[in-house]
Each structure stands twice: as structure tokens, then as C-alpha cells.
Computed example of a mutant assay.
Amino acid sequence: MSLKQTLKKAKQIERQLVQQQAVGTEPSHGAVKPRNYLALDPLLRKGGIHEKEDIDIVRKKRRRETKQQLRRTDWLSE
């Protein structure tokens, strides 16, 4: 869904809510809230260099590689 279509859908939903309020019909408690399609747009998501890197995973991976390398070395021959 393009940004233009998303904005169009959001305005359409807003108009429906305004019409419901003008008529006096309020949505019941069991009614589902209209989805915010603009929040789901891929252009508004994080990505690339802005995405958070998990440093703990990198540290664990380096530590495991170091331990494996130390286990492989032959300490008796040195």
C-alpha cells in the first residue's frame, strides 16, 4: 500500500467516525478500533544504519570464537 493510498484510507476512516459522532451512534465496547494504516507504512520504519545493533550478541560470538581457538592450540608442543 503506497503512502498516498494509506493517507486516503486514514481520511476515509476519520470521515466515518465523524459521521458516527454526528448521528449520535457511538461505537460499542466490543467494536474493533480502526487500524492505523499509516503506522504500518514501510517508509516510516527503522532500517539501515539507524537500526539498533545488539552488542551483547557480538560480544558472545567473539568470546565463543576465542575460546574455541584457545582449545585448538596445542599448549604442550610450545
Rank of each mutant, 00 (worst) to 15 (best):
8 K>M: 09
7 L>E: 10
13 I>D: 08
37 Y>A: 06
38 L>M: 06
32 V>S: 11
67 K>V: 11
49 I>H: 10
42 P>E: 03
70 L>D: 03
9 K>T: 09
12 Q>R: 02
48 G>N: 05
41 D>Q: 13
63 R>L: 15
25 T>F: 02
11 K>E: 08
7 L>I: 13
3 L>Q: 07
55 I>M: 12
20 Q>V: 00
26 E>T: 05
20 Q>F: 02
37 Y>I: 09
2 S>W: 06
37 Y>L: 14
7 L>P: 01
22 A>N: 06
57 I>L: 14
9 K>Q: 13
44 L>R: 09
66 T>D: 13
16 Q>I: 06
28 S>N: 09
43 L>M: 11
76 L>G: 05
3 L>R: 07
50 H>W: 10
69 Q>A: 15
44 L>M: 11
22 A>K: 10
39 A>D: 04
6 T>P: 00
34 P>S: 03
1 M>W: 03
71 R>Y: 04
41 D>E: 08
17 L>C: 01
60 K>G: 06
49 I>G: 06
60 K>Y: 08
64 R>E: 15
15 R>I: 03
71 R>Q: 13
31 A>P: 00
15 R>Y: 05
55 I>L: 15
29 H>R: 08
22 A>V: 01
60 K>I: 11
19 Q>H: 04
32 V>N: 05
37 Y>N: 02
45 R>L: 11
40 L>E: 14
76 L>I: 07
64 R>F: 08
64 R>G: 04
68 Q>F: 00
47 G>F: 05
69 Q>W: 13
45 R>K: 14
22 A>Q: 10
3 L>P: 00
65 E>N: 09
1 M>S: 09
59 R>F: 14
24 G>V: 01
54 D>A: 05
